[in-house]
Design a protein around this nucleic acid. Structure first.
Length: 273
DNA sequence: CTCCAGGCTTTAG
DNA sequence: CTAAAGCATGGA
């Protein structure tokens, strides 16, 4: 099955290469994207963006296609901050994905003090080792493993896959989620969820914000990493050093939709748009 | 060789 | 509470 959507506010390149997701690969005229145990093929001619999948409803929600992104871009521009106006216009095809919560938790534990190509490689090897093989688009992909699978492996296993010192975080948090599940997290509001996530081994403030934003669709979160720090200093004339304070500054400035603003800025700066 | 990457945990003050 | 050392790995 397939469906299409206006490409102006749905550009696969912007959506996938802005750093919010790691499990995708170029394919034919677009990308194959994997989420949890499902896959889709997404491509665009610049007028219409097309999604092909056996799970159209899942990916309609995944790509957040029920939201009006013209309004989000207008909101970003309304602050009249030059760098933000420029980034929002240049990256207006970006959308915040509604990713699988468990996959997001493990993926962003891996992301800490790491670079995107290496993060993708580690996740790929974990899926190939612990996931289930599926066929799609004349090719194959692996599902993202369950918490039971992840928690069932010792730290040495993750070190052998190149995860470095994050090995024990994966093993330990995997066991915890395998035992507790994450249903109770889904009922929490923005601040409660962030605080709860900080209690997991390997999850600090920045990773918690990413999980809230990308895995639980909590739009008011504003992750502060090395790139946001650079933007803060260079484009906002900021003097603060502490990342928690910088986070407060941006959350107070941008409010309810801070997470969208963060993605325009992060992607715009990092991709040099 | 050093520096950096979507930082966190642990320890010291 | 804040500050700083230590942490695996690979590419520039």
């Amino acid at each position: 099955m397939k469906f299409d959507f206006d490409a102006e506010y749905f550009n696969p390149k912007d959506v996938l290469e802005c750093g919010q997701v790691f499990r995708f690969a170029p394919h034919k005229y677009g990308y194959v994207v994997c989420s949890a145990d499902k896959a889709c093929y997404v491509h665009s001619d610049g007028i219409k963006t097309v999604v092909e999948s056996d799970y159209p409803d899942y990916f309609y929600n995944y790509f957040d296609l029920g939201r009006d992104y013209a309004a989000i871009v207008e909101l970003a521009k309304s602050y009249d901050i030059p760098v933000l106006t420029h980034c929002a216009e240049a990256a207006k095809g970006l959308r915040l994905l509604r990713q699988d919560p468990e996959e997001t938790i493990f993926s962003f534990i891996i992301s800490q003090n790491n670079n995107i190509p290496r993060i993708k490689g580690i996740i790929e090897r974990i899926c190939a080792s612990l996931g289930e093989k599926r066929s799609f688009c004349e090719g194959e992909y692996y599902t993202f493993p369950t918490a039971e699978k992840i928690g069932g492996m010792p730290p040495e296993f993750y070190k052998s896959l190149g995860a470095g010192y994050r090995d024990a975080y994966l093993s330990e948090t995997g066991r915890r989620i395998a035992g507790e599940g994450i249903e109770h997290l889904k009922a929490l509001d923005e601040r409660q969820l962030r605080k709860a996530l900080l209690g997991y081994k390997g999850i600090g403030p920045k990773v918690a914000d990413c999980i809230c934003l990308f895995g639980f669709s909590k739009a008011a979160n504003f992750p502060v990493d090395t790139w946001i720090e650079k933007i803060y200093r260079e484009d906002f004339g900021g003097q603060l050093k502490d990342r928690n304070r910088i986070n407060e500054y941006f959350c107070n400035l941008f409010g309810e939709y801070a997470g969208f603003i963060q993605q325009y800025l992060f992607y715009g700066k990092r991709a040099n748009l």
